[in-house]
């Protein structure tokens, strides 16, 4: 699947934060309809990878292409404008805005499609009855798990063909982690391409087609999710296998 017209191609990028280098010649591809997971420990460069794709940080070397066009050095809004949605690390819902307004902002790039929007909003409310219940409530007053659901729903309202997701299970109770992944499995079934950064390797490998394991800003291991799940090293380091 990855061989035909990859959506994202990261080719040998370096990323620096001031004097500190976070990524060292990192390369990665995401094929159409594929779910690719980036795994690794703290400070391994996972988040930096996804931030580079979204234009939040600029690589100092190497290129990133999205659907064959270079996007490195472009602003986030330009990249989002090309059919990408983001579920940021730590959810980042707008705390002083209502759930309804948060959802609407997800559809900001589609703001001229008023008709479709109403229908999509209904679909979101159907899929997340909790959000419908709380649509007038300020997002900041909800629990972490509910906020994560909101962040997912907000991204879905973009009606993206590609979603970048940064640590969706962070700080959530196991019940909510299951719910999050249930949603992601649904997206995969809809054919949405997903780039998923995750510390929870077990959940990520269940969802992903392929995965990359980063270590100190470099790809340490990569392969299909099945291969990695059975790789003794990965099992030992990230899956806590006995």
């Amino acid at each position: 699947m990855a061989d035909i017209a990859p959506r994202i191609v990261i080719d040998a990028i370096d990323v620096h934060y001031g004097a500190v280098q976070a990524l060292f010649g990192l390369s990665l591809t995401v094929g159409d309809g594929e779910v690719v997971s980036v795994l690794g420990g703290n400070a391994s460069g996972k988040s930096t990878t996804i931030k580079s794709v979204l234009g939040l940080v600029r690589p100092t070397k190497g290129t990133i292409t999205l659907d064959g066009l270079r996007v490195d050095g472009q602003r986030p809004d330009a990249i989002i404008g090309r059919g990408v949605a983001s579920v940021p690390e730590g959810r980042r819902v707008f705390p002083d805005m209502s759930v309804y307004e948060n959802l609407l902002l997800g559809a900001y790039p589609r703001r001229r499609e008023a008709k479709d929007l109403a229908g999509d909003l209904e679909r979101v409310y159907e899929a997340f009855p909790r959000l419908k219940e709380r649509r007038a409530q300020l997002a900041g007053t909800m629990s972490g798990g509910e906020q994560q659901m909101l962040a997912l729903a907000r991204a879905w309202l973009r009606r993206p063909s590609l979603v970048c997701i940064d640590e969706p299970s962070m700080g959530l109770s196991p019940r909510f982690v299951d719910q999050v992944y249930e949603v992601l499995h649904g997206w995969k079934a809809q054919g949405i391409t997903i780039l998923l950064v995750e510390q929870n390797a077990r959940m990520a490998l269940e969802l992903a087609d392929r995965a990359y394991v980063l270590q100190h800003g470099r790809v340490a291991v990569s392969g299909t999710a099945r291969e990695l799940a059975s790789d003794p090293q990965v099992r030992k380091a990230y899956l806590g296998a006995a």
Binding site: P76, S86, P88, V93, F94
Partner: peptide, 10 residues
């Protein structure tokens, strides 16, 4: 409220 998050919504 959150400039970085806003940028990620386009």
């Amino acid at each position: 409220q959150d400039s970085a998050a806003a940028a990620q919504l386009g």
